[in-house]
Structure formats: structure tokens, C-alpha cells
Design a protein around this nucleic acid. Structure first.
Lengths: 115, 115
DNA sequence: GCACTAGTACGATACCTTTCGTATTACGCT
DNA sequence: AGCGTAATACGAAAGGTATCGTACTAGTGC
């Protein structure tokens, strides 16, 4: 009935509401950093449960919410699942080069056998 | 007892010990982000008290210690003061572009009137 | 030696976070 | 309608963190 995409709307910060500290904080959690790396790999997005993380479902929900509320990911309901996508464009406009820098750094570190 | 530069030696992580999550966590605190921006401006480094932050002295010490222990700044005693410098080279080798990306983002955000 | 300055250590407080389990809601399919 | 799946909400436990004040240590200069 509703309009946009679905009945259930999710609260996302607008572009100008995104704060660097919040983004950095969100990315500073090892689990969330992994989530972001995985989501980044899929341009189409991932559902929450497609991210293979060794945590309880409610914990996963928590992490995705943190990522959404700080503006790192966009979440859209799609049937019973929820698609997660990085807000690449918003982040790029606000903080040019930052996201890619973090992703590259995360992969480099994982490559060194630390992730 | 040792000799390197001064009697009082400070524990710094070696380059390979620096972890991305810790760096991001350190930078995600507003006060520390400000500290880093200020220190970044001075190639010579700054003493702890030269950073004009509206916090107690012991709080400042705490923040500098976090920054040192995660590998973002190098601290060296210089008489009664302590010089703080960014570990630009180490960070650049480990996480190319990351530090500059964060600094640019922080300044951009401050420029938008949020910092 | 003494006072001054720069910074540390320690303990307390208040708050925030990560994690979990369980109960619940929303949707798709038969 | 009923079942299964995806995810949320809520409450609890455990641990971390930002902040402060006060007491302390280490150099500098008189």
C-alpha cells in the first residue's frame, strides 16, 4: 500500500546527517568490519543472514542496525529478507576516499593473516 | 636503564602490531580525532598540553595513551614535555591512503560546521 | 634545595556496548 | 489458515570507556 518500496520503512540518516566519528566507530568493530567487507564485495547487496558470521542472530541484527544508523549501509526489505548495500555514493561525497581506504586496509590486514 | 633517547621509554606497538580496528576505534572518539587533526598540522609535533582541548589533564593523558598504544602517534619525552607526532610512514605502509582520507574527511566535516 | 611546569597513576562514576536467549512480527508458500 | 524463514524487540550479563579529581613523579631554572 505504501509507496516507496515496502510497508516497512527503516530509519536511515540523510547524507548530511552522517558523521565521521560514527562511521569510524561503526567500522572499528571487528565483526562489523567483516560485514562491511562482505557487503562491499556484492554490488547487488547481501541479506543479513548471507553474511557468514559466528554470532547469534540477534547480535547480527544489532550490528546491521549500527551500520545503518551511522549511514554506512542502506537496508531495504525485500520480502522476508533484507538487502544490505553500502552507501558508497553518500560516503564518497562526504568523505572522499575514506571507504575505499578502509576496505583496502582491511583486506591488506586480512591478507597479512590478522583477520 | 636503557639508553635510546631518554631515561623514560614509552611502549609503542611495532609497525606489524598495528591493527586497523584499533586505529579506527582510536579515531572514532571526537576528542581524539581533534587531537590527531591538530598533531597532523605540525610536522615537528606537539606537546600534549599544546592541544587546546576542553578536558581535564588526566583525560588528555588518557587520550594520548590510546593514540600511542594503537600506533597512531609516536610520543617522545623532551625535557619535561612530551612530543607527539603522527606515525605517518607506518600507517601509510600498512593502510595506504587511510590516514589522509580520515584527516581530509575530518576537515571537510569541520568545514561543514559539525566539528 | 625549591618552586614550577608537564605529564602519570589510580580510583570512582556513569555510561555505552557486545553478546546472548527467548518471544514476537512480517512475509511467502502451500 | 498454517508453516517455515528472516529478522526484530527486549531484557540481562559482562566488560569496556570517557571523564574527573587528587596525589604523585620527572625535568628546568632560580
Amino acid at each position: 500500500m505504501a509507496a516507496q518500496t515496502n510497508r516497512r520503512e527503516l530509519a536511515h540518516p540523510s547524507r548530511v546527517e552522517i558523521r565521521l566519528e560514527d562511521v569510524l566507530h561503526a567500522l572499528s568493530d571487528p565483526q562489523r568490519l567483516r560485514i562491511v567487507c562482505e557487503v562491499a564485495r556484492e554490488a547487488e547487496g547481501l541479506t543479513c543472514s548471507q553474511v557468514g558470521l559466528p554470532v547469534a542472530k540477534s547480535t547480527l541484527t544489532h550490528h546491521f542496525r549500527v551500520l545503518r544508523e551511522c549511514g554506512v549501509v542502506q537496508q531495504v526489505y525485500r520480502g522476508t529478507a533484507k538487502m544490505n548495500r553500502l552507501r558508497r555514493e553518500d560516503l564518497e561525497v562526504l568523505f572522499p576516499g575514506l571507504l575505499d581506504g578502509v576496505l583496502r586496509a582491511a583486506r591488506a590486514q586480512a591478507g597479512r593473516g590478522a583477520g
